[in-house]
Write a protein that binds this DNA or RNA. Structure first.
Length: 871
RNA sequence: GGGCGAUUAACUCAGUUGGUUCAGAGUGCCUCCCUUACAAGGAGGAAGUCGGGGGUUCGAGUCCCUCAUUGCCCACCA
């Protein structure tokens, strides 16, 4: 069979993925083996794959594939999140494009549109993950609004209510006027913006005097119910008991005194709008102020404002400034930078708004959640994030869990007789409860709360609910798969999601949800900008995979992404990944081209096999070590170098036949054996390629995906260090050939001044790689030779033409200078009494040995120099 | 404003409890080579006063202080 010179990934990827699915390798059911579980961070159901997902899911797949090879019963649960506000916003937009307003629809009609949208666009992302090679247990695919999932959510809500942890109340919340819903604090992004600070003069009642305040939101003066100054502010002391008059609407409002006000800021006088500012609200509460809400839910002004009714707040801001100026109220405006809260999902400017919402008390949850992270029951990688986590947990606030949306789990609160309500899983159950209060109530008297729960109120149960551990806490699966092993996610949702899963885990399973949290960085472009749709700087992952192969992209993603570090992505990384695939491919081609013959095994091959076995054993140890520390990039790099440098550049170069393609049986078998080990080691990174070659080596029924992970065996350091010397000698010979332009075909003898550092049994390797007749031991320096040193041993190559004395002298002198400098520093140390006294004995011994070696080397070098100079 | 990090070759990063033959890796760069596995390759090479300044120590990328630059998280200052 003719094998292509270049690895062609596309066909192989499809074929092997289908094969793996067909064999059911990804599907797990509880059995006697130990479980290894990962739950996917569910992407938004209508999302499409971006580079962040690629990184994240590649990591998960690497972890799960290695675990599978190590014999665990692996279960990687995939799924999607309904992403209430994000999805609802998309659906609203789509309907608006068709000329349909959400307000024209009933809840049922809207939800039907939303489900249509979900059916049409949902799950695309999961298909895309298959291209990446993600070995998810697809039979377990979950959606956070699946019936069982929603039931779990409702059950938890009811349970928490019964425990007194859910309450309803009027609070100042973050209001998104675009989506017209409350948001949790975590969903608000604060951004620095250029705005204006308006200085507005209020008349004082019964006086000619004016009081000037400063505000960035002049439209809110229509909701003012006080002006506040600092009690220590002598400028305003005389205003005690006086009232001010709101411009235009002439509302009389008190002037109050509170330390809260910063005398230095603006004019030292602060307007108070309790309905539209959290601080003002608190002050209002303290001073018993009236609350006047002037905003509609959509951000326009309502009749309470008296003016500008129905106009958007930003429009009013501009207009009122003009009107204030016209009427002489506006003292001045200045440019000002302040932070404005924006909705994470809709980008709308958040308005603090007083409204009735549902809250979840968090303080009790946070205690075990904090302890078990700080004591490493749950390990964060990198551990640095423990600090951030602790800071948040120690300052946790109650969670606003209600959203004024339709897409999500509807809050199971049922109202009757006005504001009375009961909480129950179903309307029927609610009726029974309500009838205890009033036996005459019927089903039709009950009205369910319109709001839905925050998306994260379903996600925080994810590791439990995917195994139905909420509804059926004792089922076999939850007890087998939970706690899960690894969670791979982004630090930006550490609080949204990770922290809350930990809290839910201890509350509902009494146990941690996962043992390790691997926090990825953000994928950025070359200029360090976050990849985003609006910037258009995000490459198309599918396109990349088609161009470089899924394996190439996987390797590219991991080449430069230590945990927690951002990944400055560049296509050249994928190119490197693809080249790596191709390198392995060609190593395979070389081996495949060999013809096993009944010939004697060369000594060089014997030695190479011994060396490589030791080398790979040591490297497996290093790779396992890196994995155990979740240093995935490091594990990849060790694997990469093992393949490229050790296996290809050294091992194969030594064992491959000099002429023709005939190879002895032992070397061939050993080489195949090593190649198989190498393929297993690369399998987590390059699953398709490794499976492809695995089967091309040999017709076989077993697949590499479920092959045993190579065991780290003992190795002899001495063999490895001997080889290092050998490789240095070989490099020196290659260097010589290059300098003197001696072609490889021209053979010569390498002469060696005998020394115990020489590893004579590896001489055949030097001969093979250096293109030598043989290695000879001469004892003394022969004349007419080129010489070089490796460690403290001296090597000579006979020269046909005379040595270039000048160049040679210069080279030797340079080395002598260095060695003398080195010796000086070593002796400096040894002559330092304090060093000898304080440093560990072993270190002192080491220094003494260095001293001896350096002295010996200097002697040799000096001898050579004088000999050359004489000549 | 508070908290947590980062600053080591052109780029992306390793450097364990301080020990100098540890200043390293990959990429990139330079030179030579299309040698029958691979030019998506091979061989060789250059490259860093470890952000600045102090200090502790026999000895400091490694510990302490300080300054500078920079990133992230949290926070209601109009």
């Amino acid at each position: 069979m003719e094998i292509s010179k270049k690895y062609n990934p596309l066909a192989a990827e499809k074929r092997w993925y289908d094969h793996w699915i067909e064999k059911g390798y990804f599907h797990s059911t509880p059995n006697e083996r130990e479980a290894f579980t990962i739950v996917i961070p569910p992407p938004n159901v209508t999302g499409v794959l971006h580079m962040g997902h690629m990184l994240n899911n590649t990591l998960q797949d690497v972890l799960i594939r290695r675990a599978r090879m190590r014999g665990y019963n692996c279960c990687w649960v995939p799924g999607t999140d309904h992403a209430s506000i994000a999805t609802e916003a998309k659906v609203v937009q789509k309907l608006a494009d068709e000329g349909i307003q959400k307000s024209d629809l009933t809840r049922e009609e809207f939800l039907s549109h939303a489900f249509d949208w979900k059916d049409k666009h949902g799950g695309i992302i999961l298909d895309q993950l298959r291209k990446l090679g993600a070995s998810c247990d697809w039979e377990r695919t979950k959606f956070t609004m699946d019936e069982d999932m929603s039931e779990s959510v409702i059950k938890v809500f009811v349970d928490l209510y019964k425990k007194g942890l859910i309450y309803r109340g009027v609070r100042m919340v973050n209001w998104d006027p675009s989506a017209q819903t409350a948001l949790s604090d975590e969903e608000v992004i604060h951004k620095e913006v250029n705005s204006k600070l308006y200085h507005i003069a209020y008349n004082i009642e019964g006086s000619e005097e004016k009081l000037t305040i400063a505000t960035t939101r002049p439209e809110t003066i229509l909701g003012d119910t006080a002006i506040c100054v600092n009690p220590d502010d002598t400028r305003y002391a005389h205003l005690k008991g006086k009232n001010a008059i709101v411009p235009f609407i002439n509302r009389v409002i008190p002037i109050i005194f509170d330390e809260y006000v910063d005398m230095e800021f603006g004019t030292g006088a602060l307007k108070i709008t309790p309905a539209h500012d959290i601080n003002d609200y608190q002050l209002g509460d303290k001073h018993n102020l009236e609350i006047i809400d002037i905003l509609n839910d959509n951000g326009t002004l309502n009749e309470n404002a008296q003016l500008y009714i129905g106009k958007d707040r930003f429009e009013v801001r501009k207009q009122i400034a003009i009107d204030l100026e016209k009427d002489g109220f506006l003292v001045k405006t200045e440019d000002y930078q302040n932070k404005v809260g924006l909705s994470e999902r809709t980008d709308a400017v958040i308005e603090p708004k007083l409204s009735m919402q549902w809250f979840c008390k968090m303080e009790e949850f946070s205690k075990p959640a904090l302890i078990h992270v700080m004591n490493d029951d749950i390990q964060f990688h990198p551990a640095m994030f423990k600090n951030t986590y602790r800071h948040w947990m120690e300052n946790i606030k109650d969670w606003c869990v209600s959203r004024q949306l339709w897409w999500g789990q509807q809050i199971p609160a049922f109202y009757y007789e006005g504001n009375k309500f009961v909480i129950a899983e179903t309307k029927e159950k609610a009726l029974i409860l309500a009838q205890k209060e009033n036996p005459n109530i019927t089903l039709s008297d009950l009205r369910q709360d319109e709001d839905v729960l925050d998306t994260w109120f379903s996600s925080w149960l994810w590791p439990i609910s995917v195994f139905d551990g909420i509804r059926n806490p004792d089922n076999e699966e939850i007890n087998y798969y939970y706690p899960t092993n690894d969670l791979v996610t982004a630090p930006e949702i550490l609080f949204f999601w990770v922290a809350r899963m930990i809290m839910a885990g201890y509350e509902y399973k009494g146990d941690l949800p996962f043992k390790n949290v691997y926090l990825t960085g953000i994928v950025k472009d070359k200029q360090g900008r976050k990849m985003s749709k609006s910037l258009g700087n995000s490459p198309d992952p599918i396109g990349l995979m088609e161009k470089y192969g899924a394996d190439g992209v996987r390797v590219g993603m991991l080449l430069s992404s230590p945990a927690g570090n951002d990944l400055p992505f560049d296509e050249s990384l994928c190119e490197q990944g693809r080249n790596f695939s191709n390198k392995i491919w060609n190593a395979f081609r070389l081996i495949k081209g060999w013809e096993v013959a009944d010939i004697e095994q060369p000594d060089s091959a014997k030695q190479a096999i011994i060396w490589f076995e030791n080398k790979i054993n040591k490297t497996i140890l290093e790779i396992d070590e890196s994995y155990s520390k979740y240093r995935i990039s490091e594990a990849l790099m060790s694997t990469y170098k093992l393949v490229w440098d050790d296996f290809c550049s050294w091992y194969l170069e030594i064992v491959k036949p000099n002429y023709g393609s005939q190879i002895d049986t032992i070397t061939y078998d050993k080489t195949i054996e090593q190649l198989e080990k190498v393929l297993k080691l690369i399998h987590p990174f390059t699953p398709f390629l490794s499976e492809e070659i695995w089967h091309l080596i040999d017709d076989r029924t077993n697949d590499i995906i479920v092959a045993d992970w190579p065991k780290a065996k003992d190795f002899e350091e001495i063999i490895l260090s001997d080889f290092d010397i050998i490789s240095e000698v070989v490099s020196a010979i290659r260097n010589f050939r290059k300098q003197k332009q001696v072609p490889r075909k021209e053979l010569f003898n390498l002469l060696v001044k005998e020394n115990k550092m020489l590893c004579r049994n590896m001489d055949p390797i030097i001969c093979k790689l250096g293109g030598l007749d043989c290695v000879e031991y001469v004892g003394e320096k022969p004349s007419g030779t080129y010489s070089f040193m490796v460690k403290a041993n001296e090597y000579f190559i006979p020269l046909s033409d005379s040595v270039d004395v000048g160049v040679e002298l210069e080279k030797l002198q340079k080395e002598l200078d260095y060695t003398e400098g080195f010796l000086k520093s070593v002796e400096g140390k040894l002559s330092n009494e304090k060093f000898v006294q304080n440093a560990p004995q072993s270190l002192v011994e080491k220094e003494k040995k260095k001293q001896a070696d350096a002295k010996a080397k200097i002697e040799i070098l000096a001898g050579k120099i004088s000999a050359l100079s004489d000549a």
